[in-house]
Amino acid sequence: MKILVSIKRVADPDNASKLKVSSDGTAVTSEGLEWKMNPFDDWSLEAALRLTENASEKNARVGEVLLVSIGPNDEHTQRIIREGLAKGAERGILVEADEGNLDAGVVSAILKAIVDKESPDLVVMGKQAADGDSNVAGTKLAEELGWPVINSAMNILTRDDGKTLEVKRELDTGVATVKVTGPAVITTSDRILQPDSVQNGVTPDDHQYAKLEVGGRYASLKGIMQAKKKPIDQMALGDLGVDTAKSLNYTKFALPPARSGETTFVEDVADLVDKLHNTSKVI
């Protein structure tokens, strides 16, 4: 199985409260924050790796994972692609673009051009990016390809040699199960990191992956060494011949208003109940 995984760099999401707004109010500045792999893409990469390896044979590769990152062609984007290669992906593509010229529509158009060239069996994407929080690009890509999309997948089981997938996806009101005939786009939920989230027909079905609390697997030392030799194709937006007209224009950014008031440390349960009942009048 050949899987395309998109990976985006984002300003360190654990420190997003340190973001600032440019003096004219039209841009977000992330100075001082490290660039990290979008954590949602990291989860998707984990799913893609599980789908293309034999976990009981030291994660021996049995398929191909192709990483695509769209962004500035600099050391940070390259580092993030290398990080994905070190975790196990075979190849990377860096499409050079100024981040200010991207929106979900442009990103899905670029990814479509790459899918047309590479013909993967599956595209696995983060359901959102930790900066824009939009949840749009994956679904738009699927529609442009005429493919189905399964958003918020928590569990992926391959059937018929990977031609169909049985996927559980998270809803607001429960969990739905669908059977999808590929090629398809899948976006993943937090639960894709569970030890038994993926069955690929190669790794024994009862295999339990190590528990992952936050993100996908760490790269091994060997993986890091191997990644240095793996290819990263670099291309310019112009090479792809896609329409790069944006459909969104951000005119202004602002920090959220600070919460008013101090934290009151209450003495005990009686004090808390008194405050909630008599001061705040919420119970």
């Binding site: 300003a11 999401p13 997003a16 409260s17 973001l19 707004v21 977000v28 930790a130 900066d131 929080d133 951000y250 005119t251 202004k252 950014f253 602002a254 920090l255 959220p256």
Partner: peptide, 8 residues
Amino acid sequence: YAGNMFGT
């Protein structure tokens, strides 16, 4: 950005 920025 997880509610740390508001964009118009």
